[in-house]
């Protein structure tokens, strides 16, 4: 059957589409890939100028903020790309029988490739800001994988719903700056008053940023509790995303 044939080819398909997405994103721009570095750097500059005095209690503030920014940038741009992935490829999905999952998944892989490449210059900068080398940094590998699964689940859910209600995309544009400030990226969660900290716990991003900071900022092995929470959220989000996608995918065709 055709479908089996196509699935054997899936990794190749994903790579081709991901590379295409990267090419398309930076096509006709003089700086190209540098843009993906400039965005977090611009925010970093603002944070250092504005907040480094206010948060004087945070040691090596530049490193602290940069870690948060790098992972936020990956999350935010992945969601942005995934949200449009199915709608933008409607003409292909109407003419060729391929799993629709290909497009959101490739969008994530494209962002992941960009993110991993951006880590090279960012690591240089982190050393400049006081990052210390240690074996614990290797925890970053599973941490990034877990974070990617979380992003995939959220992105797939939003992408699926966005086919039926374009409000989802608009809602995300409105909410993402709010989520950005609701997540301890520029500040430390230790600055939050005790009584509000419980509310902040419901922001899944908080746990991922904490995880990354444990590894990159504290050079520590993250606690089992932190691993459990982040893995749990990632698995639940991926399962929910896939369930909703599978339930609704056959109804996409009249909404492109």
């Amino acid at each position: 059957m055709i479908s089996i044939n196509k699935f054997k080819n899936f990794p190749n398909l994903v790579l081709t589409i991901a590379v295409k997405n990267i090419k398309m994103k930076y096509k006709n721009s003089a700086l190209g890939f540098v843009w993906s570095l400039l965005h977090p750097l611009a925010y970093l500059l603002i944070f250092i100028l504005v907040f480094s005095n206010a948060f004087a209690g945070v040691e090596r503030y530049s490193l602290f903020a940069l870690i948060g920014l790098v992972f936020w940038t990956f999350f935010n741009s992945s969601i942005n790309q995934m949200l449009q992935a199915i709608i933008a490829n409607a003409s292909v999905l109407k003419t060729i029988a391929i799993p629709k999952l290909l497009f959101p998944f490739s969008a994530l892989i494209a962002e992941l490739i960009t993110f991993l490449l951006s880590l090279i210059p960012f690591f240089g900068l982190m050393f400049f800001f006081g990052l210390q080398l240690s074996v614990e940094l290797l925890w970053l590998v599973p941490a990034v994988i877990i974070f990617a699964f979380f992003t995939f689940g959220v992105g797939l859910l939003l992408c699926t719903l966005n086919v039926f209600f374009r409000d989802i995309g608009l809602l995300w544009n409105t909410l993402s700056p709010a989520i950005f400030y609701f997540t301890p990226i520029a500040y430390s969660s230790s600055l939050i008053p005790e009584k509000y900290l419980t509310i902040l716990q419901f922001n899944p991003l908080l746990h991922y940023i904490n995880l990354m900071r444990e590894i990159l900022y504290n050079n520590a092995t993250p606690s089992l509790h932190l691993w459990a929470v982040t893995t749990g959220i990632a698995v639940s989000c991926t399962v929910i995303g896939l369930l909703v996608y599978n339930r609704l995918k056959n109804n996409f065709v009249s909404f492109y």
Binding site: L13, S91, K94, T95
Partner: peptide, 26 residues
């Protein structure tokens, strides 16, 4: 062959497009 030119990416070259569409076709 449901519509000609579906999936062509205008920003990319003809060769890039052949590769992408052929891959999509399996």
């Amino acid at each position: 062959m449901l519509s000609i030119g579906a999936g062509l990416e205008l920003e990319l070259s003809g060769y890039d497009n052949i590769k992408i569409i052929a891959t999509l076709m399996g």
